[in-house]
Design a protein around this nucleic acid. Structure first.
Lengths: 336, 336
DNA sequence: TTGTACGCGTTATCAC
DNA sequence: GTGATAACGCGTACAA
């Protein structure tokens, strides 16, 4: 593969001149510029990003870590960040951690090795200390759905507790009193917070808490199905079901339908995250909406500002409030 | 950020020795090794990937291009490839092209600049010639859902035509004779091929072709909705609907339901790709299944073999045959 | 406006 | 087994 040296020789100029026309740092003679361009084209020259980063101590790339590459939630997240990063002519490196601590450390190490100018992280398992250590190494961080006091202004926090509250309150306002809940993995802070919101709603509306109504899931469809299965096996009565995310809600709805339990007449269902497919199930799934794509875009803008001094078109919102989106799965004219 | 030089000085050895313990290329004295490790830890040293690539002329990274980062189809694709790349301790760089030729060229240029050891491309718009040019520059390519004769053994081709045939044949076998079709964008070869399959099925079963039954969509839910709308506006009768992908089928089902048209009694519906959410709509969506995740994994294995001489655990299949997955949306005991 | 020459952080090739 | 030292490809003072 051709190097800048090859180009300079073919064009009959110095390497420095080639570099100049490449980066537009200094004016160069029109004729020489043309010769350089021609040489670049005939040689099919592509600048070596590694050499460039080494020499300039800038990679013009932003690293992003998500838990999974597949799935609607992280899909939106990646797309939101990528749009603004690309618009500003930077590149995005994506890596996934599968929510495993070892992998999370691995991929962060990788992105550090790539000398990314900054990192956008959806990090669930790695400790605050480890994260701060990365920051101290001189890599600028922005955190999604996580709060670390020491770097509070680099955190995008979603009010998961309020989301859990809104979902549960909605059920109660639909005259439901036996509100079952399929939780997310409780070691995840957001799953925990959503549960906290559930508890607060019960308390505020003086609905007695029944631990029998609670099962823990895995944030996947399978967890929704087995969650409902467990509830049915226990034989507990419930007329509402709050799921800690939409994917579990879809799984839950599938099993409920399969068992001929009418939604929402017999059991009202609500999910969380408001993924695109919530609107395509029958009945349409109620949910708690977080504008994930926008949040990720804002996070990317914050990075633009911090790392490249590029100002965002509008101020970024780092504290995000969820919205209740009631749909058919929880709305019922005649309450059963 | 600490460099190898810092480490070597702190450990009291040469840079070469540090490099050796880092890469395990040569045996080094146990004591020195320990000192190096200690120095690395206390300095928080991370090797600079750029310097490494520059010196070794290897980046240990695979570039991947997909059309979109969000969405079930490409999500599966990325996840499938990533799993095997990571298992072999290489890194994956993902970039998206939004199916625009300019962007596609851009991201490929970027990945070339990163001196990826190989590229896995889902390239829809860039020309064969341009692709071959990349290959000639010395970057090894593997193509997903595309065939270029000159590099046939690096192509993973999906038999889209057969898929279109199977979908249409299925409808005909369900005693449907007025089979409408919402096509994908016809400039995309796969959308075109799926249409070809539709035509062949009609011909083979001697069902007359009616151009009024054909509308073109955009591979998105919106296209499915507006496709049905157009058909209804035209006032053409149809008792079956073949959609060129599942997302359009979901949109189509939504509108049909909204207009109180029973699925499958009045109109049987089938999609294409068999995305995860096909099973979560009501009625469950019939589809044409391509094992996208597996295909992408195989593509990654082919790369491992070609670029790193790592043999795949099982032979990779480069010619992929689709499977019909009939579900409720097209199966009907009493035909209406 | 242009060229020379050094440095970026690492690997690889030598000698020892 | 170990340590110099020359690459690797580029940006960028500095001098011209």
């Amino acid at each position: 593969m051709a190097t800048i040296k090859d180009v300079s020789e073919l064009a009959g100029v110095s390497q420095a001149t080639v570099s100049r026309v490449l980066n537009g740092t200094t004016r160069v003679d029109d004729d020489k510029k043309r010769r350089v361009m021609d040489a670049i084209k005939t040689l099919g020259y592509r600048p070596n990003a590694h050499a460039k980063s080494l020499a300039s101590n800038r990679s013009n790339s932003i690293g992003m870590v998500v838990s999974e590459l597949a799935g609607p939630y992280f899909g939106e997240m990646m797309a939101g960040a990528e749009a603004v990063i690309r618009r500003n002519d930077k590149q995005m490196l994506i890596a996934s951690s599968h929510a495993s601590e070892a992998e999370e450390k691995d991929v962060i190490d990788f992105l550090v090795s790539c000398r990314c100018d900054a990192l956008i992280l959806h990090a669930e398992t790695i400790s605050d200390d480890d994260l701060l250590k990365v920051q101290e190494q001189g890599i600028d961080l922005v955190l999604l759905n996580r709060f670390i006091p020491q770097i509070a202004d680099q955190c995008f926090v979603l009010d998961n507790e309020l989301g859990g509250f809104l979902a549960t309150e909605h059920m109660i306002q639909q005259q439901r009193r036996r509100v079952a809940c399929i939780l997310g993995p409780q070691w995840k802070h957001d799953a925990k917070e959503r549960f906290d919101g559930y508890m607060r709603a019960l308390k505020q509306y003086q609905v007695p808490f029944d631990p029998e109504l609670i099962v823990e899931g895995d944030f996947q469809e399978a967890g929704g199905r087995s969650g409902v299965e467990k509830l049915l096996q226990k034989g507990v009565q419930f007329d509402a079901l709050v799921c800690a995310n939409d994917e579990m809600a879809l799984g839950a709805m599938e099993l409920l339908t399969q068992r001929d339990i009418a939604i929402p007449e017999q059991v009202a269902v609500i999910g969380f995250d408001d993924i695109a497919y919530a609107r395509y199930v029958t009945p349409k799934l109620s949910s708690i909406h977080f504008p994930v794509r926008q949040i990720a875009a804002d996070a990317a803008w914050l990075v633009m500002q911090r790392a490249y001094k590029i100002e965002p078109p509008q101020p970024v919102a780092q504290k995000i409030t969820p919205i209740l989106v009631p749909r058919q799965s929880s709305l019922c004219s005649s309450v059963g």
